[in-house]
Design a protein around this nucleic acid. Structure first.
Lengths: 133, 133
DNA sequence: AATTTAAATAGGAATTATTCTTAATTGTAT
DNA sequence: ATACAATTAAGAATAATTCCTATTTAAATT
């Protein structure tokens, strides 16, 4: 665990807008989708800026990354306190409410002598729409 | 859900050896690691062959894919009936035993009117070794 | 055992997502 | 207003994965 150099974080318009977009969207966009959306307001924004700011926002705990398939990483506001369902057919992502799993982290920490900081639970299957077809 | 053309699957030495390697390793190798290992026995094997056979083995239900970070997809024998712990510091992956979660799929299926086929639960944190440092 | 045929392979090119590099820009402290 | 370091845009570089094609090979048929 290398000690990180402490560097002041400046407020930039780009990061502010990325966060606001994530805050207001109901979907779980990919970096590509975020980039395309930002281009409407900031036509000169680059992918590097999107990725860098997503990393910063995640380190600040304001957003979190959901890794739900080989191809697509998705982003959302807040930390990972809920789970996701991903339709294997149409790729849609749904937030999912499940019974309390808060003591799972402790259970795993105790049994395996590790320090669990978070978990990520993803369900895969067919959504209501795709089942009909 | 497009109907898939039924195509005979032939037994090849390459696929057999990839499966045997996964069967006997205790780690959760990446495609790269599998490729390097296969090269010892099959010096002419290509990445395409590794990826194609991993896909086939997964479709046959003989192995499964664990997506545990943006950078690294990992493979293991069997289906995903257990969970994983990933150390955020050293990247090591551990199999984790947790209390019965078998009715989680049903719980989610019922509440969200979807058909859950599998779930993937990953814990992130610091392993015993990395905590000491 | 030889022949046939489509599936699988090797090899390498192409694609895609992400990270890196650098000169120019900009937020903020003075 | 000025200075300075953090951030940006732009595009090159990298890495993982997929795709393409001529050749090879498993296995069914003769």
């Amino acid at each position: 665990m290398a000690a990180e150099k402490l560097v002041p974080i400046r407020n930039t318009n780009q990061r502010q807008l990325i966060f606001e977009y994530l805050e207001h969207t109901l979907t779980h966009p990919t970096a590509e989708q975020i980039f395309q959306n930002m281009r409407q307001e900031l036509p000169r924004i680059s992918f590097g800026t999107v990725y860098r700011n997503l990393d910063i926002l995640e380190k600040q705990g304001l957003i979190s990354t959901v890794i739900y398939s080989k191809e697509h990483v998705r982003y959302q506001v807040g930390s990972m306190n809920h789970s996701h369902f991903v339709c294997s057919n149409c790729d849609k992502v749904k937030n999912v409410v499940i019974d309390d799993l808060t003591d799972l982290n402790n259970q795993v920490s105790r049994r395996h002598k590790v320090m669990v900081q978070k978990y990520n639970l993803i369900f895969y299957g067919q959504c209501a729409n795709c089942q009909k077809m």
